[in-house]
Deep mutational scan, measured.
Amino acid sequence: MKVIFLKDVKGKGKKGEIKNVPDGYARNFLFKKGLAIEATPANLKELE
């Protein structure tokens, strides 16, 4: 799953980066803790 990092996550990504991460990791950790959001076309446009 492609995500946009909202905060730095040690060993995974830095704020503003767009990366592919495992689906479970994104849903169960990154999204729940507010560390990242899904890289949807709308979210990507908002980032620019």
Rank of each mutant, 00 (worst) to 15 (best):
V9A: 03
V21G: 00
G34S: 06
A26H: 04
G13A: 13
R27M: 10
A42K: 12
D23K: 15
R27T: 09
G34D: 05
A26K: 02
K32R: 13
I18S: 03
K33A: 11
L35S: 02
F5V: 00
E46M: 14
K45E: 11
G13N: 03
D23W: 14
P41W: 13
I37G: 02
G13Y: 13
K10V: 12
K45Q: 12
G16R: 03
M1S: 04
L35K: 03
K10L: 13
L6W: 02
G11T: 06
L30P: 01
E46L: 15
K33G: 07
F29A: 04
N28F: 13
V21Q: 04
I37Y: 05
T40H: 06
A39R: 02
G11W: 08
G24Y: 14
G13L: 02
K14Y: 12
E38G: 04
A39Q: 02
N43L: 11
K33V: 09
I37F: 04
K45S: 11
F29M: 06
A36T: 01
P41D: 13
L47R: 09
K19G: 08
K7I: 11
K33H: 15
I4R: 04
G34V: 03
K2M: 15
A39K: 02
E38D: 04
N43K: 08
K33T: 09
L35G: 01
F29T: 07
P41R: 09
G34P: 00
Y25D: 04
K2L: 15
L47N: 08
G34R: 11
V3H: 00
K32Q: 09
F31M: 08
L47W: 15
D8L: 04
E46Q: 14
R27A: 06
V21I: 08
K33I: 08
M1Q: 05
L47E: 07
K7H: 14
E46G: 13
G16F: 09
D23N: 13
D8F: 09
N28H: 12
E48F: 12
K2V: 14
L35T: 02
K33L: 15
K32L: 12
E48L: 15
N28V: 06
K33Q: 12
L30T: 00
K14A: 09
Y25G: 03
G24P: 10
M1W: 06
K45Y: 09
E17V: 04
K10G: 08
E17I: 02
F5R: 00
K45P: 06
I18A: 04
V9K: 01
G16N: 07
G11K: 05
K14V: 11
F5P: 00
K32A: 12
K32E: 08
T40R: 05
K2P: 09
M1P: 03
N28R: 11
L30Q: 00
K19S: 07
G16L: 05
K32Y: 07
L30M: 03
A36S: 02
N28L: 11
G34K: 11
D8S: 09
D23E: 15
T40Y: 06
L35I: 06
K33R: 14
P22T: 09
E46H: 13
G24S: 14
G24F: 13
A26D: 04
F5S: 00
F31Q: 02
I37S: 04
E38S: 08
V9F: 04
K14M: 13
A39N: 03
V3M: 02
N43R: 10
K14N: 10
V9I: 08
E48I: 14
G34E: 05
D8Y: 09
K12A: 15
V9L: 06
Y25S: 03
G24A: 14
G11R: 06
K2Q: 12
L35F: 11
F29E: 07
L44Q: 08
K15R: 13
K19M: 10
P41M: 12
D8E: 08
K15S: 09
G24H: 14
K19F: 05
K12D: 06
K32G: 05
K32M: 11
P41Y: 12
I18V: 13
A39G: 05
K33D: 06
K15F: 06
R27S: 05
K32N: 07
P41S: 11
D8N: 12
L47P: 06
K7A: 13
A39D: 02
K19D: 03
E38K: 10
A26N: 02
A42P: 07
G34F: 09
K14Q: 10
R27F: 10
R27D: 03
A39H: 06
K12W: 15
I18E: 04
K10R: 14
V9G: 01
K2G: 06
A42S: 11
L47M: 12
A39T: 02
K15Y: 06
K14G: 06
K10Y: 14
I4N: 00
L6G: 01
L47V: 11
A36L: 01
I18L: 07
G13R: 01
M1V: 14
N28K: 11
L47K: 08
G11M: 05
I4E: 02
V3S: 00
